[in-house]
Design a protein around this nucleic acid. Structure first.
Lengths: 335, 335
DNA sequence: TTGTAAGCGTTATCAT
DNA sequence: ATGATAACGCTTACAA
């Protein structure tokens, strides 16, 4: 591997001059800068970033920790962060925790030991609080939390406006004529799910409908548990469900079908996350989109600017067949 | 940040001793090793991997270059590679090319300049050959190509047995009673698609059916182009299509439905890639799975062992509703 | 404008 | 078993 010393030797100057020339310092004669650049090209020189980073005491790598990259939400969030970070000259080191506390600790240590410039993270379900994050990163490595955040930690945060989104989704169901609307609410130890339940309640109350706690179902985010909860909801006389996830919403649709109900005529469903299958299935499922790409962008931007506030990214209701018995402006993709 | 010198000073020994103690050298007295370890823990020391790597002239980072991480195939392949590499003490730096040659060159340079231990890659559609790869990585950074490979490059390769898989998929359609089977074949400048077409042809010929070139459609991998090609196939009297992708297969199903045909009774479809929507839609789509997780694992293993051969990962036909007019052992998820 | 020299934190080669 | 020293490749005061 050719180094700046090789270039210096070939030109009869010192490594410092070469270093200055290559890093665009003004304290170099135009003539020598040209000579250095030409020689560098001729020898096929490429700066050793490892050495450069060691000397400068900083890194061009930003670590991103997520539960699993194959979840669309996270891969899109990573894509959004990357688009901003690459443009700013940073590279991205991605770690998965598979929702496990131990893996999260290991990832944090790895990033710290690699002296990354910063960490963007969405914590594992297995992490009950953020004390380990603070302890490992210290106050030298900036942290930006997104989606799954520990409010008690300092630093920037990027979250969705879950309450507002769920409010809109529920209001949409009301406007479509559904009158006994339940919810698959998810896990209440997650701030995001709690906020969605809040929005659901506010929408009902705001429309003069009562909140029936017997059709609020907790801890249901999988298709299977969504199916079971929806069966109970049907027995309780529900005619629609706002679901805090897409997979449990899918289960709800299957449950309604197993009872011979038509969707959306007899039963309405809105999911959350806008997973790609929701638009492809038949009937196409309405879903509250999380805008992960934008969340990733905002997280990256917060890292770059160093602003420590909380950024709220709007959600967007995708109205499709499964909840539109009145209007049908978003027909299924199936002709 | 606490360094080995701090530990050394605190114990009245030299940095060399501390370094040896911490890296498990046998040339350290058990007693001092213990003292060093305790002091390291007490001071909260963590090895500076950047410095270590510079000195050792190697890195614990493996670069992975893919077109886009949000494609399920690639995020799963990355997951597979990561599972092996993390266990072996490596970390993973992920770069996306968005299918563009320029971005691929930039990614290769970034990884080279970071002196990564190796590169696992699946090249962009925009890369017409692999000369830039060889030129940038040289022979110092080991390269493993997976899925999209340039055969002419040296080094390890991991590919699917596309010909065999497409053969099985087409044979399955024949066994289900379809008799005029066309194909949406994809791009012939990709070795993977060419091999699939080959398998399709062999299956027809092996069953005594003739290959009708008028129902072999090229350059169709999107839903939209799949729809258009399928319409032509229907006019030509096709009763089934083997599709070299899942999205064009979705288009084909939509085309058949738009003509009032029932699936699978009147028209059979098999896609390729086993995208998750295929199992969720109705009718559930049969698809030839690519086993991306296993491909990632094999790519990582090839890097670790240094073996330079070509590993062939088997594909797996997922028989679902869209192609099973005889048997229906894989009903749709909708009850 | 360029050179000198020190140092980032670690590890390897000597020597003791 | 430990210490002294140099070196990995680069950057940056400081000096000239």
């Amino acid at each position: 591997m050719v180094t700046i010393s090789d270039i210096a030797a070939a030109l009869g100057v010192t490594p410092s001059t070469v270093s200055r020339a290559l890093s665009g310092s003004p304290r170099v004669k135009e003539e020598t800068r040209l000579a250095v650049e030409q020689m560098a090209a001729a020898l096929g020189y490429e700066r050793n970033i490892v050495a450069s980073n060691l000397r400068k005491g900083k890194s061009d790598i930003v670590g991103i920790i997520v539960p699993r990259i194959h979840r669309e939400f996270f891969s899109n969030a990573i894509g959004g962060a990357e688009s901003i970070l690459n443009a700013a000259g940073y590279n991205v080191l991605i770690c998965q925790t598979h929702e496990q506390f131990d893996a999260e600790v290991k990832a944090l240590r790895t990033l710290r030991n690699n002296r990354v410039a910063g960490v963007l993270m969405s914590h594992a379900i297995g992490s009950m609080d953020g004390s380990h994050i603070l302890e490992i990163l210290g106050d030298r490595i900036p942290l930006v939390q997104f989606d799954r955040v520990f409010s008690e930690l300092p630093g920037a945060k990027v979250i969705n406006n879950n309450a507002e989104g769920a409010y809109q989704a529920t209001k949409h169901l009301i406007e479509q004529g559904y009158r006994h609307i339940g919810t698959l609410a998810g896990y209440m130890n997650s701030e995001a799910y709690a906020a969605r339940l809040d929005g659901y309640r506010k929408a009902l109350m705001g429309s003069g409908l009562s909140v029936d706690e017997s059709i609020v179902f907790y801890d249901t985010i999988l298709r299977e548990t969504g199916f079971d909860a929806a069966m109970k909801a049907l027995e309780a006389g529900c005619d629609a469900l706002y679901c805090a996830g897409d997979f449990c919403a899918l289960g709800a649709i299957q449950a309604a079908r197993s009872r011979g109900l038509r969707i959306p005529e007899d039963f309405g469903v809105v999911g959350t996350a806008d997973e790609s299958f929701t638009a492809l299935m038949s009937p196409a499922m309405s879903s509250l989109a999380l805008n992960p790409f934008e969340m990733g962008r905002q997280a990256a931007r917060a890292f770059l600017t160093g602003e420590e506030g909380t950024v709220v990214v709007p959600m967007e209701l995708k109205e499709r067949e499964s909840s539109c018995k009145t209007t049908n402006n978003n027909p299924t993709l199936y002709a």
